[in-house]
Design a binder for these strands. Structure first.
Lengths: 115, 115
DNA sequence: CATACCTGCTAACTTCTCTTGGCATGTGCG
DNA sequence: CGCACATGCCAAGAGAAGTTAGCAGGTATG
């Protein structure tokens, strides 16, 4: 069975854009091995928290990762991220199908107002 | 070589980046149906030639499309583009594997298979 | 109560990408 | 010869994305 057979054109662009970045690739890779909280992950990857936040946000917006706020035993608030299992297959035909559902950059409105 | 070649991290980023764009998605879609020459394709997509050139160049750099210069019957030079058949499957695990071959944005040079 | 760890946000800078418009070249046709 | 259609390239502005640094708040522990 296919979990993501016919993605929306806009959806596809969002997912691809979120993956087309070395940092975010490493983030997904790290989370694929093990869920992690923001500060720890930033340390592990050797990047700043602020930077990581932005990338995580983008990955979350594409639906590739999810966050869950938890309390550690010593009472600290930890925001744990984990990858959302996905299987995305790309072929020229699949892209052709997705391209037809692309939002036109015309004067019309635009659904996903998340920016 | 198998049908699921594990791409280099940098390679993967390049391919993903080349696809993460509405115009280029439409270009691939159009070429998946039928090969086309630059001017005709630009007309068909409703974008300028200069813009199309840039996008085609990026797709070609990622290896997704190829060009072949031909002469039409009336002697005009036509540059025909066509998609290169590909099957790209993405999962967290595949990404984790590819991420390990990512070039570090550190020193000046960037070795190929350094790991 | 200072220190250490966790969280998040915003302002501002830098860098890359996208896009347009113009220019140059070549061939065939009325 | 001027028009139509094909190719290409480059400069430059607008806009989006990436990145850093700093601020503010929370809960433990010595």
């Amino acid at each position: 069975m296919s979990s993501a057979p016919s993605p929306t054109g806009d959806d596809l662009v969002r997912v691809l854009a979120s993956l087309a970045n070395p940092h975010r690739l490493r983030i997904v890779a790290a989370l694929a091995r093990e869920r992690a909280y923001v500060s720890g992950l930033a340390r592990q990857l050797g990047i700043s928290r602020a930077l990581l936040q932005v990338h995580l946000r983008k990955l979350a917006a594409a639906g590739l990762v999810t966050a869950s706020l938890e309390l550690s035993e010593d009472g600290k608030a930890m925001n744990y991220y984990e990858v959302q299992p996905f299987v995305l297959t790309l072929t020229p035909e699949i892209i052709a199908a997705a391209a037809e559902t692309l939002t036109v950059p015309d004067s019309a409105d635009q659904p996903g107002a998340n920016r």
